[in-house]
Design a protein around this nucleic acid. Structure first.
Lengths: 200, 200
DNA sequence: CGAAAATGTTACTGGTCGGTAACACCGTCG
DNA sequence: CGACGGTGTTACCGACCAGTAACATTTTCG
């Protein structure tokens, strides 16, 4: 039995390290974050870190994997909330992103990581690629279920708008073009939904 | 009189340093590029670099400034080619960006720099902010001249699509959503142009 | 309890990086 | 010529950083 009644927030060192790493990577960047700082922020130490991860790159990959799994969880959550309702899920997705834009932390580590892992051979890039591909497939499927005629085109449009909103947030700040992201994305959906709805 | 007939490509060390820095920053990232590598690539040396720039950050700022000036030149070029034709300039702008997407180098250093300069106090962030604001104003003006009713909304839409295309290029590769950027952007312009044209 | 596994602590290595000092070189111009 | 400004070369400093070794401590569990 775990005696976690007095330290309920205390998870395993490994989990704390990954959590701390993700936080620091978001705030200070991947290259700008040293392993000592990660271990320190995780209230652990460098040795324990290197017992769980063979290298910093290994830790980076794990962080990206966890970020991807969290997104998967969100997708499932959406499916549960709007079962079979592609349009509802699309809209909820957009709403969620718009909310998270205002937050200080750019929720999607994938994009900023892609900008920082300049080495094309970095193992993390494969994780990013797989995630993006899966995300695109999912969005295309949602568009299709929403009865959009050219589902791929709307999906790509929305994906571009989303990545753009995140990027604009970083370069132009919250008052820049990203401020009207939700409005713009909804308009895109509307214009596609109006032009053609499939059979069922 | 300068005897530059035998070395016409040899510009001043300062120019070569900035050029080399911009190239390396694009390819290996800002944090991933050391000053030694820059001086070396510029066929110069670290001392000369530090005689022209007080620090690496100073050099970064100069690189961003030059990138901004090049874009200004492109805007003027557009105005000369399509004088007074907002729609033509918008379309040419999109075409140009789409072409540059395929290239190996992400032409706009501003965005990737924004992702890498995690320090909010970095002097380069001010340059980026100013550039983005000016760019937005310019695009809004073009939309207005194109007779778009809600010029700001189309401008923000296009800006999001463009930033998104660049970001998607980095994370998903050239075959991702960015492949259809031009198509999507043109469709956005069309949908706005159809819904309302101003007086003159 | 007692052994084993996991975790923590300290100190270290080898390398990189931003930045500087001292000095030598080389063209220009008076 | 000679002074001088811009440039190149070498060596160095201090800070940081990824990763490791050796040892002490705590936790887990039979």
């Amino acid at each position: 039995m775990k005696t976690d009644f007095c330290k309920p927030s205390r998870r395993s060192p490994r989990d704390r390290i990954v959590e701390a790493a993700r936080d620091l990577f978001r705030r200070r960047g991947i290259r700008g974050t040293g392993v000592d700082a990660i271990a320190d922020a995780a209230d652990s130490n460098k040795m324990t870190l290197y017992r769980h991860f063979s290298s910093k790159d290994d830790l980076i990959v794990e962080c990206l994997r966890q970020a991807g799994m969290e997104m998967d969880g969100f997708w499932r959550e959406l499916e549960d909330t709007y079962p079979g309702d592609g349009l509802g899920q699309l809209r909820a997705w957009i709403r969620r992103i718009a909310e998270h834009l205002d937050g200080d932390t750019c929720q999607c580590e994938m994009m900023s990581a892609a900008a920082q892992l300049t080495d094309e051979e970095h193992p993390g890039r494969e994780v990013i690629r797989l995630f993006k591909d899966a995300q695109r497939d999912r969005v295309v499927e949602l568009c299709r279920r929403a009865g959009i005629a050219d589902a791929e085109l709307l999906a790509d449009t929305l994906l571009l708008l989303i990545e753009g909103a995140r990027a604009a947030q970083q370069s132009s700040g919250a008052e820049g073009p990203s401020a009207r992201f939700a409005e713009i994305a909804d308009a895109a959906i509307l214009s596609f939904a109006g032009s053609g709805t499939a059979s069922r």
